[in-house]
Design a binder for these strands. Structure first.
Length: 882
DNA sequence: TGACTCACG
DNA sequence: ACGTACGTGAGTCAG
């Protein structure tokens, strides 16, 4: 049987995919739809053809001979959209990662490369499938060269196939005649002029009748239609030129050998990494088979319930002085676990299943003993495992999750599989795959095997990745950040989560009930005014009612319809009672569903709510709070703020709440070294008022409220990465005015401008921003050729060092406050952090001690050019303590 | 599942 | 010419 070769027209298929696949992008904001679509088409073809050879051809965007020739005809082709352009290098990288040969050569069009390779293959006796999105290549079709044209229709890909006979059937001409057909009729998208007045219909008729261009001209006088005859006669040169342009070269010089285009294993670790980055989740399943079989490491994993095995393993770990462990919980009960995995060398991988004499207690005792003996332990997500360690020390612990986050804080999630892939180049079974297997497979033998493999690879990965991650942290200057801030913080967060915060369920319920009354009232009134019942919570329905049925001004905005966002409705509220009622309705339903009902669902034992504090979510280094989010409890509006009354300390305790005063602006003053700003803070007066006085050239005493408000907005804007547009939006002033404010601000604080410019410059050069404590935030957007994305990158580069440094500082404060409470054997506990605020549940007899501790540790968390100030309050609920 | 809206710092 | 402020999480709707 003859061998098969698949050739792909890179740009053409990428282009098809781009327009055929809905917009996709990954977490980093990179568009991926064209690459995704390309791969789907490619995989489909490969499955059908099962070829031995595969190559993808691309145009080089440099002037070529043919481009030179028809330069003057250019201009009809639209420029490639940025969203597509950025995917071209990604596409090439993906192909390279799968070992697929990409062919491009200056001076050659992709068509020429494809034509040449196709003919070469045919000569060697191959069957060739040539995949392209446009029909130019039909002239190459033969009995052994099949042109395949994919059509993406509503998600489904259908492929039209053309051998020579199919071309004949569809166009009534042979592939060779197809060239001259095109020369006659022209092709605007390919910049082939053609003969004026001759369209597809006439061209086909002519070719069918006379067979060739030369023969047409030989029989010019036979052509009956006068206008056509005259146009042909007058444009012989143009016809010849068109033919040259339309002809694909099949004899180009290419440095391509059959060896280079031979298809290899596509699903390589490199490709896996890329697919992960691009978030091609369903394409990843193609790697699964290989993932499981690729590594024979798993043969050395030992799963056991024997006491003697445990003795052996733990003493080996103690001797080694370092080990990786992982407790695998089965999710049935808190603190209950299905297995303990332990690794002390690459070939010392154990999975202990508690059974008989090998009890959980025995295993955790063994683990605690390792800690006591000073063994260095690495694990994944240590925050959830302190219960098994019973240690306040973190110096000898290493959490690979935290390390992976610091090295790239932009990822959505961090899994052991990813770490295996990125650090060890290994593809391992994921937890998801394990769960799937467990749900499918009934045979206990197989289930055990799957579990052994998962647990083994997990702990093996941690053990092997630790030194590499440590080295990378050192290389990037984040070792101290890791050891002195992030690792100790894991311990603090563990306690905070466990501690939780008490709420009063009855009061929460009463609060919700009070809301319902007013909500129903508003609902009736709104429906009455609209003249019909509709779902006020549906932006779609609401937009239609307001802007179509009721004809309110200021419609149109978003992709899906009218914008009904608060800032739009705010403008209408004074003139239309229904709008202000809608706004009130929105506010109340938000309070009801998110807070009254939402929080109630999380109340657990002792009326306490235990949030999850996530340390590996944000790009800037802040922590986040989920299930429930206790970092966005209402504050700005009085009605919402009242919810804070249901958050109470346990009996015999009060709340002590302390928040930093403008920590980000103070960080800015320090990092920029601006004498004026530093001096402003040393004077201990209202910073916004001082700024207003300076910026608006007004005596301090005479600064109006409006001036102060504007100055405050500018201060905020600076921290966010100022833009005149953003500021004008916020203040409802013209862009010009906003620009003036900013200019005056920079004149007032010149080093602030220098600082911000420098941060952008550095980030552009390095590819990342960095905080005072060495935390990095990559800013890939700065490299984008898209104006909007690049501007975003610039703002991020200005904001990240400031927000990130503030985050570093409060983390230090948290660790120190926690430590002091612990060391001084106090009953009081740190329970919440809200970015610049700490909440301590304080024993009544420890109130002044706690206040002292918080004040001292928060103020001294960092040594800045300006002092760090806090506002501290106590109260018998959170409302009062703020 | 993504878009929209809105709560916080 | 482009068209936004920085960082999060949750509830709801609609496809």
């Amino acid at each position: 049987m003859s061998k098969k070769m698949v050739l792909i027209d890179g740009h053409s298929i990428l282009n098809r995919a781009f327009y055929g696949v809905p917009d996709l992008s990954n977490a980093q904001g990179l568009h991926t739809n064209a690459v995704y679509g390309f791969l789907n088409i490619m995989f489909k073809i490969l499955e059908e053809e099962k070829p031995e050879y595969l190559a993808v051809a691309f145009d080089v965007h440099a002037p070529t001979f043919r481009h030179e020739l028809f330069k003057e005809y250019k201009g009809t082709r639209k420029p490639m959209p940025e969203e597509l352009r950025e995917q071209v290098p990604v596409m090439k990288e993906v192909l390279q990662s799968m070992g697929i040969c990409t062919v491009e050569k200056a001076g050659l069009e992709a068509d020429d490369i494809l034509g040449t390779l196709a003919k070469r293959g045919e000569k060697e006796g191959m069957e060739v499938a040539l995949v392209s999105g446009d029909r130019d290549l039909l002239q190459i079709a033969s009995d052994h060269i099949k042109i395949r044209i994919p059509k993406t229709k509503g998600g489904k890909t259908e492929i039209e196939d053309y051998y020579a006979s199919d071309v004949q059937e569809a166009y009534q001409v042979t592939p060779v005649q197809f060239i001259e057909l095109k020369a006659l009729m022209g092709d605007s998208s390919d910049n082939i002029p053609g003969v004026p007045k001759v369209g597809p219909k006439t061209a086909t008729d002519l070719m069918v009748q006379y067979g060739s261009l030369d023969n047409i001209y030989a029989h010019l006088d036979e052509i009956t239609k006068k206008s056509i005859r005259e146009s042909l006669a007058a444009n012989r040169e143009l016809a010849d030129l068109s033919k040259v342009l339309a002809t694909i070269h099949t004899d180009c010089e290419l440095d391509v050998t059959w060896d280079m285009v031979r298809l290899q294993e596509l699903f390589t670790p490199e490709a896996y990494t890329l697919f992960k980055q691009l978030e091609f989740k369903n394409l990843l399943s193609r790697f699964e088979e290989d993932a499981v079989t690729q590594n024979d490491q798993k043969e050395t994993f030992r799963m056991t319930s024997e006491l003697s095995d445990a003795e052996e393993a733990f003493s080996a770990a103690e001797k080694a002085g370092k080990a990786a462990f992982l407790v695998l919980e089965d999710g049935r009960a808190d603190g209950d676990f299905a297995a303990l995995a332990l690794a002390s060398a690459a070939d010392q991988i154990w999975i202990f299943i508690p059974q008989g004499f090998l009890t959980k207690e025995y295993l955790t005792d063994k683990l605690k003993n390792l800690v006591k003996k000073g063994v260095k332990l690495s694990t994944f997500q240590i925050k959830n495992q302190y219960g098994y360690l019973e240690s306040d020390e973190t110096e000898r612990f290493f959490d690979v999750l935290i390390a992976a986050y610091l090295l790239n804080p932009l990822k959505n999630d961090y899994s052991i599989e990813d770490i295996a892939n990125e650090q060890l180049g290994l593809m391992i079974q994921s937890r998801q795959q394990l769960l799937e297997k467990l749900s499918l497979v009934k045979a206990s033998q197989e289930r055990e095997e799957a579990f052994r493999e998962y647990a083994g690879f997990a702990v093996y990965t941690i053990f092997m990745a630790e030194p590499r991650l440590r080295e990378k942290l050192r290389e990037t200057g984040m070792e101290k950040l890791f050891e002195e801030i992030e690792m100790p913080l894991t311990r603090v967060l563990h306690d905070m989560e466990e501690e939780g915060v008490e709420v009063r369920p009855e009061e929460l319920k009463a609060y919700g009930d009070a809301l319902v009354e007013r909500i129903e009232e508003l609902e009736h009134s709104i429906h009455k005014q609209a003249g019909e019942d509709f779902n006020i919570n549906s932006p779609k329905q609401l937009g239609e009612i307001l802007f179509e049925k009721m004809q309110l001004p200021g419609g149109k905005k978003t992709k899906t319809g009218y914008s009904t966002a608060a800032d739009v409705l705010d403008k209408l509220a004074p003139d239309y009672p229904i709008v202000s009622e809608i706004l009130e309705y929105r506010g109340l339903t938000k309070l009801k569903s998110t807070y009254a009902d939402g929080l109630a669902a999380y109340i657990g034992e002792n009326n306490r709510i235990h949030t999850t504090l996530n340390q590996t979510i944000t790009a800037t280094g802040r922590i986040s709070s989920t299930e429930p989010n206790l970092q966005n409890i209402p504050m700005r509006m009085e009605l919402g703020r009242l919810i804070r009354k249901v958050f109470v300390p346990r009996s015999g305790y009060v709340f002590t709440d302390a928040d930093y005063s403008q920590i980000e602006l103070r960080v800015l003053a320090h990092m920029s070294g601006d004498e004026q700003l530093i001096e402003a803070y040393r004077s201990d007066a209202d910073i916004h008022r001082i700024t207003a006085a300076k910026v608006f050239h007004t005596p301090f005493e005479e600064v109006t409220d409006l001036q102060r408000r504007n100055a405050k907005a500018v201060n905020f804007g600076i921290v966010y990465g100022i833009s005149s547009f953003g500021l004008s939006q916020d203040l409802s002033i013209s862009r010009k005015e906003a620009a003036q404010y900013i200019e005056e601000y920079f004149k007032t604080y010149p080093k602030v401008k220098e600082f911000l410019d420098r941060e952008v410059e550095n980030a552009k050069e390095n590819g990342y921003s960095v905080t005072m404590f060495g935390r990095r935030r990559p800013v890939p957007e700065l490299k984008s050729s898209n104006f909007m994305q690049r501007s975003f990158g610039e703002r991020v580069a200005m904001n990240a060092p400031i927000q990130g440094t503030a985050a570093d500082i409060i983390k230090i404060a948290m660790i120190r406050v926690w430590k002091r409470l612990k060391e001084e054997n106090l009953k009081s506990r740190l329970i919440l952090q809200i970015h610049d605020e700490l909440l301590v549940e304080t024993a009544e007899d420890e109130m002044s001690l706690v206040a002292d501790i918080m004040e001292k540790e928060m103020k001294n968390a960092a040594e800045l050019a300006v002092s760090l100030e806090i506002d501290l309050h106590t109260g018998k609920n959170w409302y009062e303590a703020k």
